[in-house]
Design a protein around this nucleic acid. Sequence first.
DNA 1: TCTATAGTTCTAATTATGTCGAACTATAGA
DNA 2: TCTATAGTTCGACATAATTAGAACTATAGA
Lengths: 117, 117
Amino acid sequence: MSNYRNDETDRFTDAFKALSNSHRLQIFNILSNCCEPGTECTTEQAFSCCVGDLGPRLDIAASTLSHHLKELNQAGLINMKREGKQVFCSINRSMLKEIRILFNSYERNIQTKNSLK
Amino acid sequence: MSNYRNDETDRFTDAFKALSNSHRLQIFNILSNCCEPGTECTTEQAFSCCVGDLGPRLDIAASTLSHHLKELNQAGLINMKREGKQVFCSINRSMLKEIRILFNSYERNIQTKNSLK
DNA sequence: TCTATAGTTCTAATTATGTCGAACTATAGA
DNA sequence: TCTATAGTTCGACATAATTAGAACTATAGA
């Protein structure tokens, strides 16, 4: 019997847990598209977003925001880098890639089964 | 200011919440690849898997399994269809597609920002 | 060194989740 | 109709997650 649970699986459950909270998914959305649509922004703004910029957009306490960012970071979904007084956040593209590969493989498995029909 | 939270977001947080538990992700894995690798299986087995087949592979109580399947079903991730005494489960491909599109759009957003560099 | 700004950690309260066993419903067949 | 099989719902409990406010750390600039 195959074992369908392993460390790989746990990595993904951690990532999905991080994205299973609407505040955190909002953060992920914002970070994927950091400069407001239709507005001009500097290259720097286009690439990352500091913690303080996120607060007003979510309407949660700073401590709560900090907690959520830590969860996203620990799940490998975002990067955090201090620059002076500010901490800039950005999406971790390698984790994003892994997740895309996972869902692509689900789709591929199902297509394979269909081809047996 | 854009609103990054809406019903669409909530649909996805529900889906990620469903996949954030290792038992449920295992179920999803199994359903995406229902016949044991290396074994021969009928077309019927290849396409769906009944609740009773899942139990022994997860080592959880039947009531717990039933609870998890309900969560996956309510999140739109799986289909459940009664056939006689058994209930067969299968992955909901349209939801899978939506999730793939979501992650592809994250990747595309980030690529767009990179092209501004 | 003092102060203001930017974020984090700690504590505590509320709410949600995962789990099982017992009782239940649904179906098929004797 | 009785019985066995397949699965679900309910009740209870333990554990985990979300949240805010207070206290904290880190940095930059006067």
